[in-house]
């Protein structure tokens, strides 16, 4: 759906490029995570891909055509969920949504979206009276308002309680299952693990790693199994190679003749990969 080739961008006030030859593709119907430390260029990449920033180098192909060739109708099929509140604070939630609904050819049932996100009973309240979490949920409704085919989401669950974060994650998965494509930018590795079909780690304005979360974990983890077991009243621990585990007599003996306390494969976490690839601690 998107083919990003050698994308480069420099902010006017900077001496160096923020994006330095970024290349990746996003397939139709997948949730693609763009990860990296603050300032690495994730949001810049997103702004270029949604045509807010236009003075870029390289090329972006969207549905087979150069993104530059698309006019304002590009936004008919695109939903954008901003990290910060983007609503008219002196208008109610419903007034905000009604205003934006009038600008699109096709629209979603925003009452239903608000019901699912627990905002319906407050729809006539001014946005200024909303809590931070409510504003974030309203941002998400705004992003889905035009029944988009592509969703760009920047930290969609940041600042939400676990219950509402779960609802939003469920809705993102549903969107994908219905054929939608998502570009997700977040620092929350749990969200990435739970949602993304593929992830790209950015470092120094480029893509440092790109794969499925599972493959990345396998690639960066150790192919070993740690077993903690109890034998003759004593707790012992041993580590085995994952390859040929079924023929490893020592391992099989432990499995058959001892009480196993814990058993773990040594695949790594996305947090660890993030730190390793980008050199920055996660939240």
């Amino acid at each position: 759906m998107f083919e990003v080739r050698e994308l480069a961008f420099r902010y006017p006030q900077n001496d160096e490029n923020t994006l330095r030859g970024l290349s990746f593709s996003i397939k139709e119907g997948e949730i693609f995570g763009l990860l990296g430390p603050s300032g690495v260029g994730k949001t810049t990449t997103q702004k270029v891909m949604v045509k807010i920033l236009t003075d870029y180098g390289g090329q972006i192909i969207y549905r087979g055509e150069d993104l530059r060739s698309y006019g304002r109708d590009f936004y008919q099929d695109v939903g954008i969920g901003f990290e910060m509140p983007v609503h008219f604070s002196k208008l109610s939630a419903e007034e905000n949504l009604a205003f934006f609904r009038n600008l699109y050819r096709k629209t979603a049932d925003t009452d239903e979206l608000m019901r699912r996100l627990g905002l319906y009973q407050d729809k006539d309240k001014k946005v200024a009276e909303f809590s931070k979490g409510m504003k974030i949920r309203l941002n998400f409704v705004r992003a889905l308002l035009n029944s988009p085919k592509v969703l760009f989401l920047d930290e969609p669950t940041m600042g939400l309680d676990p219950k509402n974060a779960r609802i939003i994650k469920g809705m993102i998965k549903e969107f994908r299952d219905d054929g939608g494509t998502v570009l997700l930018t977040t620092h929350l590795m749990n969200d990435v693990d739970e949602l993304c079909d593929r992830v790209a780690f950015m470092a120094e304005g480029k893509i440092a790693e790109i794969d499925t979360p599972k493959n990345l974990k396998l690639q960066h983890g150790l192919r070993r199994v740690d077993v903690e077991y109890e034998k003759n009243g004593e707790v012992k621990a041993e580590s085995f190679d994952l390859d040929g585990l079924g023929e490893d007599e020592a391992f099989l003996d432990i499995v058959k003749n001892t009480r196993i306390i814990t058993i773990h494969s040594k695949e790594t976490t996305l947090d660890d990969i993030f730190i390793k690839v980008t050199g920055v601690e996660t939240l």
């Binding site: 949604v50 807010i52 304002r72 109708d73 590009f74 936004y75 008919q76 695109v78 954008i80 901003f82 910060m84 509140p85 983007v86 609503h87 008219f88 934006f100 600008l103 699109y104 050819r105 705004r142």
Partner: peptide
């Protein structure tokens, strides 16, 4: 920030 929302409208 509502300007941002308007910028991504058709």
């Amino acid at each position: 920030g509502s300007l941002k929302s308007l910028l991504v409208c058709p």
